[in-house]
């Protein structure tokens, strides 16, 4: 079967603005005339837990959940949470991640550091094309770490073959007026970031 559905998986930690980012991406895709589906899990898992958002688009989409090994893009809002889903990528899938760690609580009391320190080596050994962004620092330079999400969307947008103006218009449409300018800047920052 010819696979015409495109898949984007966003993953991170509750509170990082993943749902807002996926709303923005879907708004743009819908505007471009695609059939779009997206899925998230709400509720208990959101309390500081691992959060994902699945986005699928194409001529006709059936399942709202990305099947294993079929993601075209994986956007990790946090290093560990990005790497956790690396197997969801298809062979030629690309991994974009915020090079930033949030240590998962104090669940494993007694161990010194439970946060794996070799994730970047593992990512580079995975064989997937990957891009590391210092999105947290980029956001801090813009004056607000809450725009990490828009910076990452900006970078992702470079790959999606959609006119940049469509993205900017969508930001103006769905972001609160007060934060529109900041988010437009954040998008530009991500869009023009050179990872090399």
């Amino acid at each position: 079967m010819k696979d015409t559905v495109n898949n984007i998986l966003l993953s991170g930690v509750g509170g990082q603005g993943i749902l807002t980012a996926s709303n923005l991406i879907c708004e743009v895709l819908l505007h471009e005339g695609f059939d779009v589906k997206k899925n998230e899990i709400h509720g208990m898992s959101q309390r500081g837990g691992s959060v994902t958002s699945h986005i699928r688009y194409g001529e006709k989409v059936f399942s709202p959940v990305i099947p294993h090994g079929e993601a075209d893009y994986l956007v990790g809002f946090e290093l560990l949470e990005g790497y956790r889903y690396i197997d969801t990528l298809r062979e030629k899938g690309q991994f974009i991640y915020n090079n930033y760690s949030i240590v998962p609580g104090s669940m494993l009391l007694g161990r010194e550091s439970i946060y794996p320190d070799n994730l970047e080596e593992k990512i580079s050994a995975s064989g997937y094309k990957y891009y590391s962004l210092p999105a947290e620092e980029m956001a801090r330079e813009l004056g607000n770490t809450r725009v990490v999400n828009t910076i990452l969307v900006g970078f992702l947008a470079r790959f999606l073959n959609i006119n940049k103006d469509v993205w900017l218009e969508a930001i103006e449409r769905i972001v609160k007026k007060k934060y529109a300018n900041l988010n437009l800047k954040a998008f530009e920052t991500g869009y023009s970031y050179d990872p090399e």
């Binding site: 930690v13 500081g48 197997d87 669940m107 946060y115 794996p116």
Partner: peptide, 21 residues
């Protein structure tokens, strides 16, 4: 074939369960 791959490399990662805020 690709569904019969070996166990995932990411299995031993520390979990991130929900917590009291």
């Amino acid at each position: 074939e690709h569904l019969n791959e070996e166990a995932s490399a990411v299995e031993n990662l520390p979990p991130r369960p929900p917590v009291l805020c």
